[in-house]
Design a protein around this nucleic acid. Structure first.
Length: 427
RNA sequence: GGAGAGGUGGCCGAGAGGUCGAAGGCGAUUGACUCGAAAUCAAUUGUCCCCUUCCGGGGACCGGGGGUUCGAAUCCCUCCCUCUCCGCCA
């Protein structure tokens, strides 16, 4: 959420910045400062009265102790209380309104990101590796997976419905291998601490990271409890430090977490209906960082490099793009997507999204740090990125490592996790 | 799910309607002593909000919310959480 104090002085800048997102947000800024002004007026008067009340009550105490009459003072306080009640009600109304508005205003896009309305204007930063040159028509992971009997979409549909998959045999093992491989790289080489969080979270957590209140339709909600299935590990892991003040010496804090992720995918009915690309449930290894405000931009570059290291170790061709203002997620100030080459689609597809949220999530979820220098508190900057989406990585491996006979070569780096298995072949 | 106990500052722990943001201890910081350290002594040691250019002033917060009262950490209601025992269970 944006800082109301900052907005008082920079409303025009905020409006111009938000306009770049192209979703008509500036309108929501209207009335905000009026309510803020009204809130402060009422608060001021209320606090003055409370000060009087305090003094009068103390007088009553003294008088009663001395056995004197205090009826007059008591009556005065009664009158003051009536006024305070009205004022506080008004303050609360204003606060609620301001809060409700602020929670629906997205983060300000960073100045460095390109203009644009959708993914078409995202800008490639660099690419790495060459798309494989097949001497045959490459198959899709769906065809490969089904003929190798390691993926079963049909039975998944029976069990659960559309957009679910069953990984089977060596497929299940490969998925597990990918997850373990990624966690190992991030903990042993990239300096992250492993977290295994709950997969059900409450409303406060989802509000903290920005999924609520605006994007409830994307979430699976429990019927009988105020809990939601996590759409990403970002939610439980970022909220791990909600309502906390971290000592500056503890920063940066870096966590890696494997979790399944659950998304309703409302509004994407026609998209990626076949295969693993878009599922209601998928696995992801997520990287989350908490850093001092001055360090978040370098941290973002490092985060992207950490995510890239997985693709490099697996020799998968990919590129890095920076999202344009119109394609940016709600809470993010800047986002790099990693896109991996998918031979069956002849294109690069998103496999990771790495973002700097600056102080936006920290302000929503009250994650602060105490400065070493002067003991003052400030909001941390939060970042997170997929490192990587396991389901899509599974797709990339099947498709990029497929052979003319329909078998799949296991990348060198993974064999250790599969008891040295070099091939996935039809049985 | 049933029965009971409890949630107070970084931690431990008192406080049981009146000047309590809260005793005491521990921890931490600073100063004194010391060549230095330890020990000792002294001071400081929460967060948020409002007003103020600075200095400073004020309000709120004792799990959350509501109530009683001139006055609530203390009384009442309600919700949440933790712990113990029983039941059930991976």
């Amino acid at each position: 959420m944006l800082d109301i104090k900052w907005l008082r002085e920079n409303l025009d800048e905020a409006g111009a910045s938000l306009k770049r997102r192209g979703d008509g947000t500036p309108v929501e800024l209207e009335g905000l400062l009026d309510r803020d002004e009204q809130r402060r007026q009422c608060l001021k008067e209320s606090e003055t009265l409370k000060n009087q009340k305090k003094k009068l009550s103390a007088t009553v105490g003294r008088l009663k102790k001395d056995g004197q009459d205090a009826a007059d003072e008591m009556e005065q306080v009664r009158q003051i209380n009536l006024r305070i009640k009205d004022l506080d009600a008004e303050v609360e109304t204003c606060e609620r309104e301001i809060e409700a508005k602020l929670l629906r205003i997205p983060n300000l896009p960073d100045r460095s990101i390109p203009d644009g309305v959708d993914e078409g204007q995202n800008r490639e930063i660099r690419s790495c590796g060459q798309p494989p040159d097949f001497s045959f028509e490459p198959k899709s992971h769906v065809d490969l997976g089904e003929s190798l009997d390691i993926l079963d979409f049909k039975r998944a549909a029976k069990i659960s419905g559309a957009r679910f998959a069953v990984y089977k045999g060596l497929g299940a093992r490969l998925l597990r291998a990918l997850i373990n491989f990624m966690i190992d790289v991030h903990t042993k080489e990239n300096g992250y601490e492993e977290i295994y969080p709950p997969f059900l979270v409450n409303e406060d957590s989802l509000t903290g990271t920005g999924q609520l209140p605006k994007f409830a339709e994307e979430l699976f909600q429990m019927r009988d409890d105020p809990l939601y299935l996590i759409p990403t590990a970002e939610v439980p892991v970022t909220n791990y430090h909600r309502d906390e003040i971290l000592p500056e010496e503890a920063l940066p804090v870096r966590y890696v977490a494997y979790t399944p992720c659950f998304r309703r995918e409302a509004g994407s009915y026609g998209k990626d209906t076949r295969g693993l690309i878009r599922q209601h449930q998928f696995d992801k290894v997520e990287l989350v960082q908490f850093v001092p405000p001055g360090r978040s931009w370098e941290a973002l570059e490092l985060l992207v490099a950490n995510a890239e290291s997985i693709l490099q170790k697996l020799n998968l061709p990919y590129r890095v793009v920076v999202l344009c203002a119109g394609d940016l997620g709600f809470s993010a100030a800047k986002t790099y997507d990693l896109e991996v080459w998918l031979p069956s689609q002849g294109t690069y597809r998103e496999i990771s999204s790495c973002s700097n949220f600056t102080d936006y999530q920290a302000r929503r979820s009250h994650i602060r740090y105490k400065k070493k220098e002067d003991g003052k508190t400030g909001f941390v900057h939060t970042l997170n990125g997929s490192g990587l989406a396991a389901g899509r990585l599974f797709v990339a491996i099947l498709e990029n490592y497929q052979q003319a006979d329909g078998s799949v070569l296991v990348p060198e780096a993974l064999r250790h996790y599969l008891d040295g298995e070099k091939w996935i072949r039809a049985r």
